[in-house]
Amino acid sequence: MDIHIARMTQKYAVEALCWKYEKPYDFYNNVLTTSAIVELLGGGYYAIVDSSCKLIGFFCTGRSAKIPAGDRNAVYIEDCVDLGLGMHPSLTGKGKGDLFLKRILHFIEEEHKGKPIRLTVASFNKRAIRLYKKNGFTKEHQFHYKGMEFITMKRSSAMT
């Protein structure tokens, strides 16, 4: 799978917001609204595309990658690059996540040299947690938001 990071466009934003995941991952489904499109076009989001410019995923850094309850639970105090990501539902669970994540991590590490990377994941998402651990992330904190448990995971920079 040959993948590239591209500018988030309105076309890609609309497409990503329409993705539908199977249970229990349907928690990650979005609703296509004007405000959701504006969020994805706000500058912190990037598209991941294949060699034919087909959208296969996206990622964001900064505030958009955080869960609001994390601030209230003081899990985002340390200065890190916060990362959020999503892969097309048809590609999940097929062993493609490692290359996908490595490409994102390389990009972030080039942009933010020396800064640790942190992500927040729903604790039921064992597939993602396994992938993150495999790529050097370790569990930091846990907290609840809207009846669901989340964990933060952190990775020191320059591990790829």
Score class of each variant (00 low, 15 high):
D79I: 05
R127T: 00
Q142E: 07
V49F: 00
K126I: 12
M148K: 11
L17I: 03
R72H: 06
L41E: 02
S64G: 13
R130H: 06
N30S: 15
M153K: 13
C80W: 07
V38Q: 14
T34L: 13
G70F: 00
Y145G: 06
L55V: 06
L105I: 10
H141C: 14
R103I: 03
S90M: 15
Y25D: 12
L85N: 10
I37C: 05
T33H: 05
H112S: 15
E109F: 08
H88P: 07
E111F: 10
R130C: 08
I117A: 04
A16K: 01
K102I: 12
T33G: 07
Y25S: 03
D26V: 11
L85T: 08
R118H: 14
R63C: 10
E110G: 14
K126L: 09
L99A: 15
E22Q: 10
Y45H: 04
L85W: 08
I77H: 09
E140T: 09
I77A: 09
E15I: 11
D26C: 09
K54C: 12
E111S: 08
Y21Q: 02
C53V: 13
T9R: 10
A65H: 02
V75N: 03
L40D: 09
K11Y: 12
F107G: 02
D50V: 01
H112E: 13
M153V: 07
Y46V: 01
P24R: 01
A69D: 14
T152S: 14
H141W: 07
K20N: 04
G44M: 10
I67S: 08
N29I: 06
L83D: 13
D79S: 13
G147S: 06
S51D: 08
F143Q: 01
K23P: 10
G84T: 13
F100G: 05
M8C: 15
K146Q: 15
G84M: 08
V75S: 00
G43C: 08
L105C: 07
K134Y: 14
V14Q: 04
Y12M: 06
D82A: 08
D50C: 03
G147D: 00
Q10N: 11
